[in-house]
Structures are given as C-alpha cells and as structure tokens.
Amino acid sequence: MIVFIIRRSLQSGVVLLLMSVLVFVGVYAIGNPVDILISPEATPQEYEEAIIAMGLDKPMWSQYLTFLNGALHGDLGNSFVFNEPALKLILQRLPATLELAFGALFIAIVLGIPLGLIAGIKSESWVGRSIMSGSILGFSVPTFWVGLMMIMVFAVMLGWLPASGRGQTTDLFGIPVSFFSLDGLSHILLPAVNLGLFKLSLTIRLTRAGTRENLQLDYVKFARAKGLTNGRVIGVHVLKNILIPVVTVLGLELGSLIAFAVVTETIFAWPGMGKLLIDSIGVLDRPIIVAYLLITVTMFIVINFVVDVLYSVLDPRVRLGEEKI
C-alpha cells in the first residue's frame, strides 16, 4: 500500500508538471490580456508600464519559470482583474462548486442505483422500459436547454423554486454551505438536478447493465438455492458486484462534474468557480485560468486515487499488496 501511494504521488507530480506546461503555453497563445484590461485611451507609455508590471515583457520560458517557482511555493500568481492571489479567489468559490457537484452526484446515486436495479430486474416490463426511455432522454437533451426549461417551469411559471443564486448559507467548520437551511436547499435543488441529470442516466444504464449481467450468473442461482430472500440476493449479492463498475465510473465523473459545472453555474448564476472561470476567460485573466486548470487536474488525481482505494475495498480480488493465503 505504501509503495502504491509513493508511486502514485510521483506519477501525479509528473502529470501536474506536464499539465502546467500545456496550460501555460495554451493560455499564452490565446491573446494579450493587456489589450482587454487597459482602457483604449491609455498612452503607449502606460501600455508599456502595464506590460512590465504584469511581467509580460519577458520571454515565455522566463515567465513560465517565474510561475513555476511561485507555484512550488503555493503562489499561482495574482489575478490581473482582482489583484488578489488566484488560488485564494478560486478556493473561495470552491465550496459552492463542490456542494453543487456532490448534490448532483447524490441525486445520481440515490435515484440512479435503485432505478437501475428495477430496470435490470424488470427489463422486459413497461416499468423497466420507461426507466430506460427516460435515461435516453437524460443522455440526449443538452444540459443548458434542460436548465433553461427548468427555470421556465419551476421558477417562472410555477414559482416554486428560485432561479438563481445560492440563497441562505450556514457555516460548517467555517465553510459556507447551503444544504442546512430550507432556503439554501430550495436554491440548490434545480441546479443540482440539472447538473446531475446526465450522471443519473449514466448510473441507471450502468446499474441496469450490471444487474442484467449478474442475474445470469451462477452465484445468483446458488444464492437463491440457499434459500435467501430476494431482497438479500439483490441487495447484497448482486448490488455489491454492481457497485464495482458504478463506483469507478462515478468517481471519474465526479471530477468532470466539478470541472464542467461551468454551464450549470452560468445558467443558474451559481457563485462557483466555473462561473469565475468563464468570467476570467472573457477578460483573459491568465493566472485564474491557469490556477483553475491546475486545481482541476489536482482534483482529478485525488479523486482517481480515492476511487482506486475504494475499488480495492469493494473488490477483494484487486486488494492491494495482499498475499494469497
């Protein structure tokens, strides 16, 4: 296990380094932020000064090394717009995005696994078929459109739920969260459903496929032959086998939920880091973009690691470093 962690950390370091080079070069290529940040009436002299102040006069490799040096000391540069550390700005927005992502994941798991089980067990009946048709819809309808429709129906026409913002937040260990108050919950519901819809469909499909596959296997028949109740056969024997692929995929998808919550955050004006990223791209705020991407990569790495550990908990056959008895 320790060897595994060390090897994994080294790999992660290489990935981060490569990623930082790619991101830096990419962001460098998309344009000169000074053109946007400085007012058109500025004199050429002011223009030069701004460039020097931001360190943009130096060659790219030099800029990269400066950035890398800072990054190693935990400083990802100051935002051009806010003139505050980029890392701090992003971390301020992180809880909102995490909350949204986990809300979406929660919906996907809590609804997806039971629905998938039902669809798998009763795959021939109308119940199973309607669940599957619903999941196809969830897959194929674009997120932004569903978000807009949800605002139309639940916020504008019915007026049941708020359309934007985060609502009242309460502090949990100094981090503001929404899900402790009714107002906060009502604010998070629509965006979480919106963001989770795709993952919900995915979970349903994965669970259904796993259920159908596992129900055919001998161990299910053997479990029934032992006289176990249907609930135990499905809820323990089958479910534990299905969870292996579901956890793997959902773990990976959690990363993408966090990273690509951008669309949902924009639609519902959710004050998360996705919205910050979109705003920053608009004004070419390089440090924020770079910091955002690096944080996202780090999160992917961490999540993958957690998934690997979880995987070994679920599947004894891949348990790490265990010897045969």
């Binding site: 028949k221 053997f222 032959a225």
Partner: peptide, 25 residues
Amino acid sequence: LRALRGKNIAMIFQDPMMTLNPVLR
C-alpha cells in the same frame, strides 16, 4: 419454496469457480 431451498433440498452446482459470490467472504 424459499423456505424449502437450502433447508430441505440443497443443490451443488457444476462450476465451483462461478457458484460462490466473488466479493463476499
């Protein structure tokens, strides 16, 4: 039937590699 299975009539299957659930002790 459930009460009968495993209690009064038990069954042993053909392939031992497949009959035990791989993820349960």
